[in-house]
């Protein structure tokens, strides 16, 4: 049981989200801070490239920790989630910002962020083969792990059931 004085302040995280909301207004669909060092923001798909450039150049998020997808079959939507952090300033290396975009399940196409964070190249390739989401502007959008392994529909989609016998 923590006493009130133990609750860490969420100033840094709130400040990041405030700057984003101030600059992009309605393009920021949702934002919250789930706990210390973990701000989350949902961005409209069309503005994702601009928001990412702002994050890298103005707010100092120079490193992408990972990228992945999620499938919400019931709501007929899919999500692409990027986790970004900063490497240059030691004091804020612990913050990981989740940047999400929601895309319709019937036509999953988004802009690739390889031009902003080159390290997401392999992660976007994997999301393409596992979910069928196309990334526009990706230098080599091909299958990464599934060649010769699986020929069927994108396996991580929720409506693909793998037969076991």
């Amino acid at each position: 049981m923590t006493t009130p004085t133990n609750i860490p302040s969420l100033e840094r995280e709130d400040h990041i989200l405030d700057q984003l909301k101030e600059k992009f207004g309605d393009a920021i669909k949702e934002s919250r801070v789930s706990r210390r060092s973990r701000p989350e923001v949902t961005v409209a798909m069309e503005k994702m490239l601009e928001v990412s450039r702002f994050l890298r150049d103005e707010l100092g998020f120079d490193r992408a920790n990972g990228a992945g997808g999620a499938d919400y079959l019931r709501d007929q939507k899919m999500e692409v989630i990027y986790h970004v952090s900063n490497l240059a300033r030691k004091e804020t290396r612990d913050i990981i910002l989740s940047v999400k975009e929601i895309i319709p399940r019937s036509s999953p196409k988004v802009n690739s962020l390889v031009s902003i964070w080159p390290s997401v190249e392999n992660f976007e390739r994997e999301t393409y083969e596992m979910y069928g989401i196309t990334f526009d502007g990706h230098p080599h959008l091909e299958k990464l792990f599934l060649i010769d392994n699986w020929d069927g529909p994108p396996p991580l989609r929720k409506d693909v059931r793998i037969p076991t016998d």
Binding site: N149, W150, I162, T164
Partner: peptide, 13 residues
């Protein structure tokens, strides 16, 4: 795994 699939027996690949 090489006898029967083991821990990953219901994997797709």
């Amino acid at each position: 795994c090489s006898i029967s699939g083991g821990l990953f027996h219901d994997s797709y690949s």
